[in-house]
Amino acid sequence: MRYEAPTTINAAVKLLAGKAGVARVLAGGTDLLVQMRTDRIAPDLVVDVKRIAGMRAIATGAKGFKIGAAVSGAELGEHKALRKAWPGVVEAANLIGPKQIQSRATIAGNVCNASPAADSVPALVAAGASAVIAGTKGKRTVPVETIAVGPGRTSLKKGEIVEAILLPKRPPRSGDAYLRFIPRSEMDIAVVGVGVSLTLDTKGVCTAARVALGAVAERVLLVPEAAKALIGSKIDDDALARLAAAASAACRPIDDKRGTKEFRIKIAGVLAKRAAQAAAARARGK
């Protein structure tokens, strides 16, 4: 195995594009090193992107936030403006593992690892986040939900790297939240995760919403039917019941060591309801 730590994105792309065999990007390494250790992959090349300029920075602009691909969860959690604007995204990112993982794990890595149970992804999808991808043919920007195509599989082409995650500017009277279900209080992989982002009008009626589910399908799902249940409502009990039903209906989970199909379907509804309430409370300024 070869280890490289380039200082420019172009050099990183060139390394990844030029290498025959298995090449992997190393940002936080909290998935990659585990996969290496447990013999799931044996890369021929590892490209550490942490020394590339801008990769560890959070930029705030008129359009929103640009989060470098190597920014750790801990750094996200310490960024006050980001936490204020997108508390659901930050809380989701901060749920990825304990402090030891937070110091390294990145949301770009969480997206690219393409686990259906990735905590930050439902929150990012609900938030309408996109990813800036650098490759041999230049850069492109895509919605986050298009990156994972199945467990461990992405739509990224050879030589492509996620350079940053973009979060839009937060509209007024809006809020987001992410809730996951785990058996313990920490250290588990989500059995179900739900991200909700919504906007209310001055009367408290929901005008826009996005709902995303994790760990209930082969990839994170954006569920427009669930969002529809909220839009036009005051996030009342009826709307929440319809939301829960729509969320459960969208699930196509598997039985595994972490939970049964039946359980996941039911919990998706419960969490969708609770996450929507939390997001609405934030939108109402509570």
């Binding site: 730590a5 909290t30 090193l33 750790s72 030891q100 993982i101």
Partner: peptide, 14 residues
Amino acid sequence: RVTCSCLVLGAEAE
């Protein structure tokens, strides 16, 4: 920052 040293490559410590 606290980190699991099993999830850091020796090379990254540069």
